[in-house]
Amino acid sequence: DLRKKIVDLHKSGSSLGAISKRLKVPRSSVQTIVRKYK
């Protein structure tokens, strides 16, 4: 699940930009998912 991957990467200390590059999703999507998770 993409959300879980993003949250896991964020927990392990990756920046939003790094996560978005790695998973090839827009940075804004990463930000939204991380914000919802918090």
Rank of each mutant, 00 (worst) to 15 (best):
I33R: 00
H10E: 03
V25A: 03
S12V: 06
S15G: 08
K4Q: 12
T32L: 14
K11E: 09
V34Y: 00
K21E: 09
V30H: 02
K11V: 11
V7N: 04
G17H: 13
I33H: 03
S28Y: 11
K38P: 05
D8F: 14
L2K: 07
L23N: 00
R22E: 09
K4A: 11
L9N: 01
H10S: 04
D8M: 14
R22F: 14
S14Y: 15
S12L: 13
I19F: 01
R22L: 15
H10K: 03
L9W: 07
I19V: 03
L9F: 06
Q31Y: 10
V7L: 15
H10L: 13
R27M: 13
A18R: 05
G13P: 01
L23E: 03
K24T: 05
K38T: 10
I33C: 00
Y37I: 07
P26S: 10
K5Y: 10
S15D: 05
S28N: 08
S20I: 05
P26D: 06
L9Q: 05
V7P: 02
V30T: 00
K4I: 08
G13L: 00
G13R: 00
R27H: 07
D1L: 12
K4Y: 08
K24S: 07
I19W: 00
L23T: 05
V25P: 00
K38S: 07
V25K: 04
K4V: 06
V30C: 00
L23W: 03
S14L: 15
R35T: 09
K11I: 13
D1S: 14
L16H: 06
R3A: 13
R22K: 14
I6S: 00
G13V: 00
V34L: 13
A18W: 09
A18Y: 12
R27Y: 14
D1V: 13
K21A: 09
L23I: 05
G17I: 11
S12N: 12
H10A: 06
Q31A: 14
L2D: 02
T32W: 13
K11H: 07
R27P: 06
S20E: 04
I6F: 02
R22H: 13
K38G: 11
S29R: 14
R35K: 10
K36V: 08
D1K: 10
V34A: 02
T32Q: 14
R27A: 06
V25E: 03
I19G: 00
I33L: 06
K21P: 02
R35I: 06
R35N: 10
I6Q: 00
V7S: 03
R27E: 05
K11T: 08
L16D: 06
I33M: 04
S29T: 15
K4D: 10
I19M: 03
T32F: 11
S29I: 15
R3H: 12
S20C: 06
L16Q: 06
V25F: 01
A18V: 08
K36F: 10
S20L: 01
R35S: 10
G13F: 03
H10G: 02
S20M: 05
S29K: 15
G13H: 03
L23G: 01
V25W: 04
V34P: 00
R35M: 09
R35F: 07
D1M: 12
G17W: 11
K38F: 12
V34M: 09
S14F: 15
K21V: 07
S14P: 01
I6R: 00
K11D: 07
R35E: 11
L23D: 02
V30G: 03
L2Q: 05
R27Q: 05
L16F: 10
P26A: 11
L23Y: 07
H10T: 04
V7D: 02
S28V: 08
G13M: 03
Y37K: 04
I6D: 01
V30Q: 01
K36I: 10
H10Y: 14
P26C: 15
S28H: 11
V25D: 00
Q31L: 09
S15H: 03
V30F: 01
L16S: 06
A18D: 11
K21Y: 06
V7A: 07
L23F: 07
K36E: 14
S15N: 04
G17A: 14
K4C: 11
K38N: 11
S28F: 08
Q31E: 12
D8W: 14
Q31W: 10
K4L: 07
D8A: 14
H10R: 04
L9C: 10
K21M: 08
R35L: 09
G17N: 15
K11Y: 06
G17L: 10
S15E: 03
T32H: 14
S15T: 09
K38V: 13
V25H: 01
P26K: 10
I19P: 00
V30Y: 01
G17D: 10
S14V: 15
S28I: 07
A18E: 12
A18S: 11
L2V: 09
L16Y: 13
G13K: 04
V7T: 06
L2H: 04
I19S: 01
S12G: 09
I19R: 01
Y37E: 05
S12T: 10
Y37A: 06
S12W: 07
S15Q: 04
L2G: 03
S29H: 12
S14W: 15
R3G: 07
L23S: 02
S15F: 02
K4W: 10
P26Y: 05
K5E: 07
K21L: 08
I33A: 06
V25I: 14
R3D: 09
S15M: 03
S14A: 15
V7W: 13
S20W: 00
K4S: 10
D8K: 10
L2M: 09
R27T: 05
R3Q: 10
R22I: 15
Q31T: 10
K5V: 11
D1G: 12
T32P: 03
V34K: 02
K38H: 15
S28Q: 12
T32K: 15
K24H: 12
R27V: 12
L2I: 12
D1F: 12
D8H: 11
V25M: 08
R35D: 10
K4E: 09
S14E: 15
S15K: 03
D1A: 12
I19Q: 01
K11A: 09
G17E: 08
A18L: 08
Q31R: 13
I6E: 04
A18F: 10
S14N: 13
L9Y: 06
K36A: 13
Q31I: 09
D8Q: 13
K36M: 12
V30K: 02
I6H: 00
L16M: 08
I33W: 03
V7E: 09
P26W: 06
V30A: 04
R22G: 08
T32A: 15
L16G: 03
K24N: 14
Q31D: 07
G17K: 13
S14R: 09
S29E: 13
I33N: 01
L23V: 05
K36H: 11
L16C: 05
I33S: 03
S14T: 07
V7Y: 10
K21G: 05
P26N: 07
K21W: 06
K11W: 05
R3E: 12
I19A: 01
S14Q: 14
K11N: 11
R22N: 09
K24R: 11
V30L: 03
P26F: 04
K4N: 09
V34N: 02
S12Q: 13
P26E: 04
R35G: 08
K36R: 14
S28W: 13
S15A: 05
K11S: 06
L16T: 09
K24Y: 04
K21F: 05
R35V: 06
S12H: 07
G17Q: 11
I19N: 01
K21D: 07
I19Y: 00
K5T: 11
G13E: 00
A18M: 11
K5M: 14
A18P: 01
T32E: 13
R3N: 08
R27W: 10
G13D: 01
K11G: 04
I33F: 04
D1H: 09
K5N: 07
H10V: 09
K5F: 10
S14K: 13
K24F: 06
K5R: 13
Y37N: 05
